[in-house]
Design a protein around this nucleic acid. Structure first.
Lengths: 217, 217
DNA sequence: CCTACCGATCGGTAGG
DNA sequence: CCTACCGATCGGTAGG
């Protein structure tokens, strides 16, 4: 009788195993996509990286594009979590700004954190019908940035007007595009040093904050 | 007797025709690479775009990667030309900085000027043995930026220290990476409006300069 | 999740 | 630069 069910095991355990394999595929794909790009990565590469045969990833994803979407979603989920966590420890506008910058560098460059770099690099490989879903989540992340940059602009700590005063929505958006652009573009040139790399990201974050902030240390 | 030669036509004319076809391939490839990426563009796409059959591009290039390299080289050649030309008309540090920013936006976004965007987007598709050749030319372009940014930093017109004074090599490099990063990242989000788009690039350049410059207009 | 496979497509070549 | 082609590889599927 039990054999007529999908599985004799407890459903929770099976679901866990399946979710684990799916996660392994997402992580391996992120690493491969980051290294050689979505188009240049084959399903066989992905399968091989987690010890599967070439057809098996399609048990977890209906096609290659779905894997790309899952990688991007995972990146945004982790990114939002890490950012909200980092913001909890910051109490001043300057601290919040530094936390945003430092955390974003981690999201982009930490080992095992290739998801957002893939989002930036391989955006055009994502089918149009998936783009809106990703944008909706990304918007939430951008709002965290806007909040931080707005208070910095109002105080005259970044941007052209060192007197501060209420920054317009346009000024906030420009600040976000310029600052996030500068940080995001590091995916094209920043390489983690061997050994402990966290130190270097720290230095990069400090230099970035120092460059954008008025008369900072 | 003449038929034993490669061609009965004057060699100059033949060389011109061949160079023209080669240029057409480079331009069409740039547009296609920019649109869907190097890996997702097929040799058949490229051939079709200039009215050739699938095997014919290989009369001009020994393989697909050589086309990518040629696209990047063309971009740097044009970019250097345009930048030097723009700098000739500028006399103050502020004018030179604005000219660098404005020209770079044109290089990235003008119609028919997709070469540098391809360089940025598809860098990892370029075989390692070609990278150094491209970097060597790119270094010359970066030096123009460094010169402009150094004088701006020395005057305290950009960067953290509004007092100015001799900027260190590290400060100059950081400024270049941040500012060029911000501008280069526009390839991922900036879309030319319909109709005359030059106006919009002008506005984007103005906003960029205003954001990075101390208390500017 | 594997075995075995398929149709389509790809970069590239030979020989004019 | 075309015709005609090839070997390799790719994403994906059927049927366990």
């Amino acid at each position: 009788m039990a054999e007529t069910r999908k599985s004799a095991k407890a459903p929770g355990v099976d679901g866990q195993d399946e979710a684990n394999r799916r996660q392994a595929l997402i992580r391996a794909s992120a690493r491969l996509f980051r290294e050689k790009g979505f188009e240049a990565t084959t399903v066989r590469d992905i399968a091989g990286a987690v010890g599967m045969r070439s057809g098996s990833p399609f048990y977890h994803f209906s096609n290659k594009q779905e894997i790309l979407k899952a990688v991007m979603e995972e990146g945004l989920r982790q990114g939002l979590d890490r950012t909200e966590e980092a913001l909890r420890a910051a109490t001043t506008p300057q601290q919040r700004f530094h936390a945003m910058v430092r955390t974003h560098y981690g999201i982009l460059h930490d080992e095992g954190s290739e998801f957002i770099a893939v989002l930036l690099y391989d955006w055009r490989s994502l089918p149009d019908e998936h783009k809106q879903d990703i944008i909706a989540v990304k918007d939430r992340y951008d709002l965290l940035w806007q909040a931080s940059l707005k208070e910095m602009l109002d105080l005259g700590l970044i941007g052209a007007n060192s007197q501060g005063g209420k920054a317009s929505a346009d000024e906030v958006k420009t600040a976000r595009l310029m600052i996030m652009g500068a940080i995001n573009f590091t995916v094209t040139w920043y390489k983690q040093r061997s050994g402990r790399g966290a130190m270097d990201l720290e230095a990069l974050a400090d230099r970035t904050v120092r460059f954008f902030m008025r008369g900072s240390a």
